[in-house]
């Protein structure tokens, strides 16, 4: 199966629930609503055998725009068929259903996205900070983040 067949079949199966698809860009991707994601993920893994979640990128698009989550999913064979799935969520309530039961590696990906960008993955079994200290405040990769002046009494900012 090549990429155009994959896109064609996805469009057939999900119809208007695929908001936007970009087949020939630098990052071939489809855009969906968060509610569609568990079903699409299940279908990608079971019907198209894309068994490898390569990366989960979170992007802060700014206050008015919201947060983007981009999943890069791939099939682990010599042809490496791949697709990216974009999901946009509002800034104040960034909730996406978890896919850790579909790809186990999503567990740590999602914890990282929660830690650095403040996504909330509904149904994740252990959504706690992974990189920053447990009592860290704020989500550092948000564009409006200000790093704390002191941390436990030690001065943190120099300039």
């Amino acid at each position: 199966m090549d990429r155009s067949t994959l896109f064609e079949k996805l469009r057939q199966k999900f119809g208007p629930r695929i908001i936007e698809s970009d087949e020939n860009g630098l990052v071939p991707s489809v855009r969906i609503e968060p509610a569609t994601w568990p079903e699409l993920a299940q279908s990608l893994r079971d019907d198209f055998r894309l068994d490898y979640l390569s990366c989960l990128t979170g992007i802060d698009r700014g206050k008015g725009q919201g947060l983007d989550a981009i999943y890069h999913v791939e099939r682990m064979d010599a042809a490496r068929l791949s697709i990216s799935v974009r999901i946009r969520v509002p800034y104040e309530n960034p909730v996406i259903p978890t896919v850790e039961h579909i790809w186990r590696t999503a567990d740590w990906h999602e914890r990282e996205a929660y830690d650095l960008l403040g996504f909330r993955f509904e149904g994740h079994h252990n959504l706690v900070r992974i990189l920053c200290a447990e009592d860290w405040e704020g989500h550092p990769l948000r564009k409006d983040y200000k790093s704390p002046d002191t941390y436990h009494g030690v001065r943190n900012n120099v300039v």
């Binding site: 990189l131 860290w136 983040y145 704390p148 030690v154 001065r155 943190n156 120099v158 300039v159």
Partner: peptide
């Protein structure tokens, strides 16, 4: 400068 998590 930008290392929010690094001890200076």
């Amino acid at each position: 400068k930008y290392g929010y998590h690094v001890l200076k």
